[in-house]
Amino acid sequence: MRIELTADDMKQLALAQVAQGLPLPDGRQLQALAEQRVMQRILAREAAAFGLDRDDDVIERRLAQKMDFLLADLSQLNPPTRDELAAWYADHAAEFTQPARASFRHVYFSPDGLGGAAAEAAAAAALPAIAGLPASSPALAGVGDRFMFQDYYGGRTAEAVGKEFGPEFAAAVFAEMPGTWAGPIRSGYGWHLVHLDSLEPARVPALDEIEADVRAAWTNARYKEIRERAEDDMRARYTVVIPDLDPADLGLAAPRGASAPGAGLGQ
């Protein structure tokens, strides 16, 4: 039986030490590291000969992970051509959609004081009076109640509007017709008349705008595909037997939070 370290192996041993922030090993230290590595290999082979590598969870996970890295490398081997990427992007455009953005003005009717029903009624009653007004009309100043944040919101996503007003309000605003006053629409604060100035629809950017992101996504998808296929192929070569057991029949106690001193520390 033969164990041979190459010059590259020696270089790696030295590098591993440097990478840990230690100085470059001198000649004697390098020999000692080499001797350790040789002994590690000998012990590993002897252990394998005894079958000690079987049923070791750490070794199994390590080997499984190496297989996984191998598959990940495979997915990088054949980068897509521009045409392949464009075709793939066309199929997956939905994943790259940039959300719609709304710009709107609103008039607020607070339930504080007379209650929610009165606020809704006041809003409904005010709608005809302002229906013909542009969103910038100074006449709006006398309508409704003072709102605690902004009267105008420009270019907001539904998520941002939802964060400020509650998600139901955001959904209702994004469903409005631009250029008209609509409502009453309910938010987490009360009732609103809303003038949707513009609704920039959700859009799929051109491939040129986000090519790097699309390439990364392609590689990731390819990796998943290769892994699934490889796992299916490999599993097909095995007969797998798993007992159908209820956890309660395993005869094990659930892990307990301990009451011994020291446990529960550092939470």
């Binding site: 969870d57 659930a254 011994a260 020291g262 446990a263 520390l265 550092g266």
Partner: peptide
């Protein structure tokens, strides 16, 4: 961490070293 007993063992070991 291989089983439930390890949780207790490691936690006590590291936690007590901190205390």
């Amino acid at each position: 961490v291989k089983d439930a007993a390890d949780i207790q063992r490691i936690y006590l070991w590291l936690g007590t070293s901190m205390i």
